[in-house]
């Protein structure tokens, strides 16, 4: 595993990962994989922005009047909620990408 990373200058000697590929790797497939990745990143970073910058900072005064448990919702996002969502976002990304990598047959 550790030594399997080929030098990135793959000119003409790029293999297809030990012959496990079902289809040949193509530029279209590479582009499709990258577009999918960008979409997922975009959605997850939008959530990241909303729970931290929007809920905890830009809407701090608006959400101050909304209770969560015993405390204002904006305060909860600022000191608890956003952090919890951050952790979930990373694991969700891992989980989704595991599936996408398999679908495109680029899993290690």
């Amino acid at each position: 595993m550790a030594k399997s990373t080929n030098p990135p200058k793959s000119g003409g000697k790029g293999g297809k990962g030990g012959g496990k590929s079902k289809q040949p790797w193509s530029q279209e497939k590479a582009n499709a994989y990258w577009r999918r990745n960008l979409t997922i990143i975009g959605i997850l970073l939008a959530i990241w922005f909303v729970v931290s910058y929007l809920f905890a900072i830009l809407f701090a005064n608006i959400l101050y009047g909304v209770p969560f448990g015993q405390i204002p919702a904006s305060f909860w996002f600022a000191q608890q909620g956003a952090i919890i969502v951050f952790v979930l976002l990373i694991f969700v990304y891992c989980w989704i990408m595991d599936r996408v990598d398999k679908e495109f047959d680029v899993n290690e």
Partner: peptide, 9 residues
């Protein structure tokens, strides 16, 4: 791996 370039297999 290094499956980057088209037709590289």
């Amino acid at each position: 791996g290094a499956q980057v370039v088209e037709g590289a297999h």
